Simulated scan of single mutants.
Amino acid sequence: MILPAGIRPAVPADLDAITPLHAEARATYYRGRIPDHLFDSAAEHARTGEGWARAVERGDVLCAVLPDGELAGVAAYRADGGGTVTLTQLHVAPARRRHGIGSALHSACLAAWRRAGMSTARLEVYEHNERARAFYAARGWAPDPDGPRAGAHLVLTLRLSGE
């Protein structure tokens, strides 16, 4: 299934591209702020690769794919069964940023969540990731009034119903 703007559900064959894209994107906001081994080690890559594999198996991952087949971005989410969905990851390859890929992924997530009947979305964004914070704020995400922080992350929510 191909979704608008080159967005499609991930398949297991995408994992070889998803894991390094994830690592490269995270390095842009974690490097210099937390020890490298916490985000850029063989053990961490294996751990996150396993997480991505589980999310792909559940069908909770969307990929942004360029016409030449290159994976340019990825988003993962998980519904809680009570009308809330959590955006667990949204990454664009650093070389592909500022070309609408993140916006296309975000829009595709919103459409999927609304089709599934979700009423609220939540996410956690690293407090020092100003680029991501601005991205989400521009799309209507706001601090969660019930718990605006989770350690070094800000918790944001977005109402999906009635929009």
Score class of each variant (00 low, 15 high):
99 H>R: 15
99 H>M: 11
99 H>P: 00
99 H>E: 15
100 G>P: 04
101 I>R: 04
101 I>P: 01
101 I>M: 13
102 G>A: 06
103 S>Y: 10
103 S>K: 10
103 S>A: 15
105 L>H: 13
105 L>G: 12
106 H>T: 09
107 S>E: 14
108 A>T: 05
109 C>K: 05
109 C>V: 14
110 L>Y: 04
110 L>M: 11
112 A>F: 03
112 A>W: 05
113 W>H: 06
113 W>S: 01
115 R>N: 12
115 R>G: 14
116 A>Y: 05
116 A>W: 06
117 G>C: 04
117 G>H: 00
118 M>W: 12
120 T>G: 02
121 A>L: 08
121 A>R: 11
123 L>N: 10
124 E>M: 08
127 E>T: 03
127 E>P: 04
129 N>E: 12
130 E>V: 02
131 R>E: 12
132 A>G: 12
132 A>K: 09
133 R>A: 08
133 R>Y: 08
133 R>N: 05
134 A>S: 09
134 A>M: 04
135 F>A: 05
136 Y>Q: 04
138 A>S: 07
142 A>F: 02
142 A>W: 10
142 A>C: 01
144 D>E: 12
145 P>L: 00
145 P>H: 11
145 P>E: 08
146 D>H: 11
146 D>C: 07
147 G>P: 03
147 G>E: 04
147 G>I: 09
147 G>S: 08
148 P>F: 09
149 R>V: 11
150 A>V: 01
151 G>E: 03
151 G>K: 01
152 A>M: 05
152 A>H: 07
152 A>Q: 13
153 H>A: 10
153 H>P: 07
155 V>G: 03
156 L>I: 04
156 L>D: 10
157 T>C: 07
157 T>H: 14
158 L>R: 08
